[in-house]
């Protein structure tokens, strides 16, 4: 996809040369004219606050009194003197590390099934797409009811199947994150990501399947040797976006469990929120945010590097 090609195959010299080349004046005038609204937002709501938060991360600041410069103390504190820092990172990694790959692969396999010539296709697609339309907060309320310890249909069903001691789901330290993952899969598998996979499937040239048929390939081998390799750019794209989003998960955990039970769903974004808005440690929260940004950007860059080993661009 264009975004990834521009960033991964980025030739600095060519860009500089192009940028310095003379261009028509009206191209500049109109270009910047149309760019203005975004540019104001970019500078005012992104660059400005981003730079400010670097500064704040070096201070002690509670909004009411002026920020007090303390150097790197906040960064030292997070690694040495914050008992919830590492647990929140591992919980976030668990949630995203399990939930995102399952979600992406789930969407991929579903899209492959839905790309067949079958009856009532629109009905099936709608069925799988519907959960992604449910607002997250409504979805949390619904899942807390489905997974209610005593009266939820899941546990009632499990008891009827003879499992007399079913999990406590959101109320159970071991099951709280799996419950959130389950809810995320229900919402995510059939949603926009699946449609992106359908688009990717439709972009696979028909000749490849014909050639495979002539060679006597089975449907199974076509799946493994044609479909999946040609879907790798789509998998890559969805993994990148999925991980960036998954690591930032807040609403589901906050509304479902508020980080509980016993800090079991105390994700990094929740930790940051509590520091900022419950304890008003704005400086410390800014430091946490920048640490988080570095992690996410490094992970993304690392995935892009790694992508040349497994992502296959057909004809590109």
């Amino acid at each position: 996809m264009a975004a990834t090609t521009t960033t991964s195959r980025f030739d600095v010299r060519a860009v500089v040369r192009r940028e310095l080349a003379p261009r028509k004046r009206w191209q500049n005038i109109y270009g910047y004219l149309f760019l203005t609204p975004w540019l104001i937002g970019f500078l005012g709501l992104f660059i400005g606050p981003g730079v400010t938060s670097i500064y704040l991360s070096l201070t002690k600041y509670d909004v009411l009194s002026a920020p007090e410069f303390i150097g790197f103390a906040n960064y030292v504190k997070m690694f040495t003197d914050d008992p919830l820092f590492w647990p929140s990172i591992w919980r976030t990694a668990y949630y995203a590390g399990v939930g995102v790959p399952l979600g992406v692969l789930g969407s991929m396999f579903l899209s492959i099934l839905l790309n067949n010539k079958i009856r009532a296709l629109p009905a099936y697609r709608t069925l799988f797409f519907m959960p992604s339309l449910v607002p997250i907060v409504a979805s949390v309320v619904l899942w807390k009811w489905l997974l209610n310890d005593d009266f939820g249909i899941v546990n009632q069903g499990l008891r009827n199947l003879g499992i007399m001691d079913p999990p406590g789901w959101f109320g159970d330290r071991r099951w709280a994150i799996p419950s959130l993952i389950m809810m995320g899969l229900w919402q995510g598998i059939g949603g926009t990501r699946m449609i992106i996979f359908l688009a990717g499937l439709q972009g696979i040239p028909e000749e490849l399947y014909e050639a495979a048929s002539i060679d006597g390939a089975s449907a199974w081998s076509k799946l493994w040797n044609v479909t999946i390799p040609l879907l790798t750019p789509t998998i890559f794209f969805n993994m990148i976006l999925g991980i960036i989003g998954g690591l930032q998960t807040f609403t589901a955990a906050f509304v479902a469990t508020e980080g509980g039970p016993g800090f079991a769903t105390w994700f990094f974004s929740l930790h940051l929120y509590k520091q900022a808005f419950d304890y008003w440690n704005m400086g410390y929260a800014a430091a946490l945010a920048w640490f988080f940004a570095v992690i996410i950007v490094s992970l993304t860059v690392w995935q892009m590097r790694l992508s040349s080993r497994w992502v296959f661009y057909y004809g590109g």
Partner: peptide, 9 residues
């Protein structure tokens, strides 16, 4: 960039 970076400022 995570939204948290710009959130506080």
């Amino acid at each position: 960039i995570p939204t948290q970076v710009t959130l506080i400022p």
